[in-house]
Design a protein around this nucleic acid. Structure first.
Lengths: 342, 342
DNA sequence: TTGTAGGCGTTATCAC
DNA sequence: GTGATAACGCCTACAA
């Protein structure tokens, strides 16, 4: 059917192994035959068959991506395209392809990962999220299959290469920033408590509150689904308090959109009545009105480094696990202001 | 290294070919040996190697996705996660995996596609966009490689299975809707003119304008990059006219966010001063304030049908190309109102 | 420097 | 029903 190494060999009048060597750019092959073979390849339009190569080679030149459940709201977050952009940049440089696993349920996703791993469809995996007690991560560790994680593994973090922001510190600093603006009643709007990032940021928030000698109130902490309903619920709960917060630390820009929209419906003005500071600085965060003050966590770099780390794992399995910390930076826009009257 | 069909065969005391038949669920195999083999597989934790299977089979059980350049702003559009959700739903049902090709430049992407195709890494391809004179599409046609397109191919549309909304009709109806609200000065904010969808919607818009006997003014038609800068430019141009539009038909929700934010900065009120109607109804469109009136184009279904069509192409290559039209529906929210004084 | 031969893990085609 | 055996397309000792 399609052109194989043998066809090329025949035309160039050499052995198939010679052609193979030319492809691999084997140094001990004469320039002359190299040229001859290359001409034949061009002439026939030869392209190596990757499956055959993988089989002989035991390497697929592909890396697998594990995303959250596509039924999950988080899937729609612009975080993912951006992180994939980072991953694909380095994948391209090294001629790796991307293999995706999605599914509507946890089981589907798990099963997809098993197929990737056992079927030897990929050389390694990047986990695009980190959650508490993750089945997939346990499985990959058991199998000793190369993988890296974006975010901090809940346990065994030392033995797993992972790429993360210092979320604890980030949340702490941001809370301090709000405090420096005069806020003393600061709410925390978190997402899924299964996600390690939620936990880290919550702890950082708590630290700052306690350091400042402010009361740490449970009723200021809310965890909700993303988006509309979540944002709505969260906001309503918080505003219903006798002493509602004057500032909110929100874990994700998209969630902030929901919060913003709900506040707007309720006629609460941002930032005059309430300040909003969130994380991620996704592309759209400058487009809301008011535009979001947000922490740029450098999503692209998270992806880039995660893939880079993975390729290192694959290429030198002996190398020990490492932790890469990607810096963050506050982008001040329009949703934070000094507390009124100060 | 890992357990193979031979190990299973040995343990179950049968020939490798028998094991293979059990895997394939070959009917003419005795229940007894079937059970015996399955036990052995379970015991050893056997999983078939996909590469070997592909090689023998000439089928990879994977489909390739071609996205726009990740340097492109469009890449960040929530359209893509949603369309991928549709694709992966049916892919999962039939145990197909997803293979992704991205890149920062057109050349990179093209090269990635060539690798997918020639390297036999996938059985077929879904193009996630359709643009005028697309190199990749030409290539796939030349190679007679199975593929489907989301959107309408610019040429040879009859011979390519594609899944599309009736964008001409949609734009026409939406323009008529704005006219029915009393608007007579309606602007069109389009994206890249290379995209077929832009062209179709522009033509539908024109049709409605002419049908209504309204003047078709070139200065009401603006094409810009997505997002902030694009939206800003577009809006400024339009508002600078002696007779600025009272309503805008915007080709994409994300672009609408940009428009909305710019209008807001300029102190122009939506929908009181100007109405906004856009396309896609992405998840975030209800979160802006005011929330977007938008045409739901059923992105999930576009993806689902595209993958379904592709699997049909792959499974019965003889079948002729078809066009699937996915219905659309106006979702009325807060950005459209009757023209003031009517 | 190049050719020969065997193997990577499956499936498919014969036989029996 | 089941077992040999030859592909599938490529890589890699080993030999020459």
């Amino acid at each position: 059917m399609s052109v194989t190494i043998k066809d090329v060999a025949k035309l160039a009048d050499v052995a198939p192994s010679t052609v193979s060597r030319v492809i691999a750019n084997n140094p001990r092959i004469s320039e002359k035959t190299k040229r001859k073979v290359k001409e034949a390849m061009d002439y026939l339009g030869y392209h190596p068959n990757f499956n055959a190569r993988s089989l002989a080679n035991r390497s697929t030149q592909a890396i697998g991506l594990v995303m959250p459940s596509s039924a999950d709201k988080a899937f729609q977050n612009p975080f993912f395209p951006e992180v994939i952009r980072g991953i694909s940049t380095i994948a391209h440089e090294q001629e790796y392809a991307l293999y995706m696993s999605t599914g509507n349920t946890e089981d589907e996703i798990f099963e997809g990962v098993v197929r990737m791993v056992q079927g030897r469809r990929v050389d390694g995996i990047v986990m695009l999220y980190s959650r508490v007690d993750d089945r997939i991560m346990c499985y990959l560790q058991e199998q000793k299959f190369p993988f890296t994680v974006i975010g901090k593994p809940f346990k065994n973090a030392e033995s797993i290469t992972h790429i993360d922001n210092d979320n604890f510190k980030a949340a702490q600093e941001m809370t301090e920033y709000l405090i420096s603006l005069g806020h003393e009643r600061i709410g925390f709007v978190g997402g899924n408590l299964n996600l390690v990032v939620t936990i880290d940021r919550l702890l950082g928030y708590e630290k700052a509150i306690r350091n400042a000698g402010l009361p740490y109130k449970d009723e200021y902490i809310v965890h909700e689904e993303f988006l509309k309903e979540g944002g709505q619920e969260a906001v309503k709960e918080l505003l219903a308090l006798k002493d509602p917060p004057s500032a909110l630390l929100v874990i994700d820009d998209v969630m902030s959109f929901g919060v913003l929209s709900t506040l707007n419906e309720l006629g609460v003005s941002v930032p005059d009545d309430i300040s909003l500071l969130s994380f991620n600085n996704v592309m759209l965060s400058e487009l809301s009105s008011p535009s979001l003050t947000s922490v740029d966590i450098n999503i692209f770099k998270l992806g880039y480094e995660a893939a880079k780390g993975l390729l290192e794992c694959i290429q030198c399995p002996e190398k020990e696990a490492k932790r890469v910390v990607v810096p963050f930076q506050l982008i001040e826009r329009q949703t934070c202001s000094k507390v009124s009257g100060k």
